[in-house]
Computed example of a mutant assay.
Amino acid sequence: MAIHKLVFDDVEEDLFTLIAIHCTLEDYRLAYLLNKFLGITLIRKPLDLDFQNGELTYSIYEWEDCKQQTIWNLVSNVCKTEDYRQGNSNSLFSLQEKTTKINYLLPEYKTVNYFLKIDNEFNFNKEKYIIDSILKIPQVATAYSIKSDKLKSKDHLIFS
């Protein structure tokens, strides 16, 4: 019996540019400043990015550039959840301890606050222009490009 093997050499991967942004601004403030400095129009999506049936949600902003046929997304990398548990049972008063757990959209980049994902792979000059424009924002500590082949949890960047 003959064995047939299918090889997918010509399958094209999703092409996107991913920029990591380190800053302590709130998401709406960063979106406003990116709109101002990049000349784009990021708008908050009606529903946040949802993981684990609503337990983990990440804020997401989107802009569709019809001229370039490109979708820009600003997404938070950090999700904080609060949990209450019963404290010391030997006490006269019942105490509840509040614990805060921090979850990350891309756990391999725990120091990154936000990601700017652009569904189009730009040439080096255009990508450098975008990063330089982001670095002109005074509240941004740093911004840099991340290569998609270095990502372990690339599936978390599928927003549609």
Score class of each variant (00 low, 15 high):
Ser148Val: 03
Phe93Cys: 03
Asp50Thr: 11
Leu116Phe: 08
Ile43His: 10
Phe37Pro: 00
Ile131Pro: 06
Gln96Trp: 14
Ile102Ala: 02
Asp48His: 12
Lys152Val: 09
Leu6Ile: 15
Arg44Tyr: 05
Glu64Phe: 14
Asn113Cys: 07
Ser94Cys: 02
Ser133Met: 12
Asn113Gly: 04
Asp27His: 07
Ile118Phe: 09
Leu135Pro: 01
Lys45Thr: 12
Thr99Arg: 12
Tyr129Met: 06
Gly54Tyr: 06
Met1Asn: 12
Leu95Pro: 00
Leu151Tyr: 06
Lys5Gly: 01
Val75Thr: 13
Tyr58Thr: 01
Tyr144Phe: 15
Ser89Phe: 13
Glu127Phe: 00
Ile43Arg: 13
Ile137Pro: 04
Val75Met: 07
Ile40Thr: 12
Lys45Ile: 05
Tyr104Leu: 01
Ile102Arg: 07
Cys66His: 15
Ser94Leu: 14
Ser160Asp: 08
Lys36Glu: 14
Thr81Val: 14
Leu74Cys: 10
Lys80Ser: 11
Ile40His: 08
Asp9His: 08
Thr111Ser: 15
Lys150Gln: 10
Leu74Trp: 06
Asp10His: 10
Gln139Gly: 00
Asp10Thr: 06
Leu47Ser: 13
Leu151Lys: 05
Tyr84Trp: 15
Asp155Gly: 01
Lys152Tyr: 10
Leu105Tyr: 09
Phe16Cys: 02
Leu116Val: 09
Ala31Glu: 05
Ala2Pro: 14
Asn90Pro: 00
Ile137Glu: 09
Tyr84Lys: 08
Asp65Lys: 03
Asn125Met: 06
Gly39Pro: 08
Ser89His: 12
Met1Val: 03
Leu95Ser: 12
Thr81Phe: 01
Tyr114His: 05
Gln69Ile: 05
Leu106Pro: 03
Thr100Gln: 06
Lys136Gly: 04
Val140Asn: 06
Leu157Arg: 05
Leu56Arg: 10
Phe115Glu: 03
Phe124Arg: 03
Asn125Glu: 14
Ile71Gln: 08
Phe8Ile: 02
Ile134Arg: 02
Ser148Gly: 01
Tyr28Arg: 05
Val78Tyr: 04
Ile60Asn: 01
Phe16Lys: 03
Leu95Tyr: 11
Leu30Met: 07
Thr99Asn: 14
Trp63Gln: 00
Leu42Met: 03
Asp9Ala: 07
Ser89Asp: 10
Val11Phe: 14
Leu135Val: 04
Glu108Thr: 03
Phe37Trp: 11
Leu15Glu: 15
Glu108Gly: 07
His4Cys: 04
Pro107Trp: 04
Lys152Pro: 00
Asp149Thr: 06
Phe8His: 04
Asn77Arg: 04
Thr111Lys: 15
Glu127Ser: 11
Asp132Ala: 03
Ser148His: 02
Lys67Asp: 15
Ile19Val: 15
Leu42Ser: 04
Leu105Asp: 05
Ser160Cys: 01
Thr57Gln: 13
Val78Phe: 09
His22Lys: 10
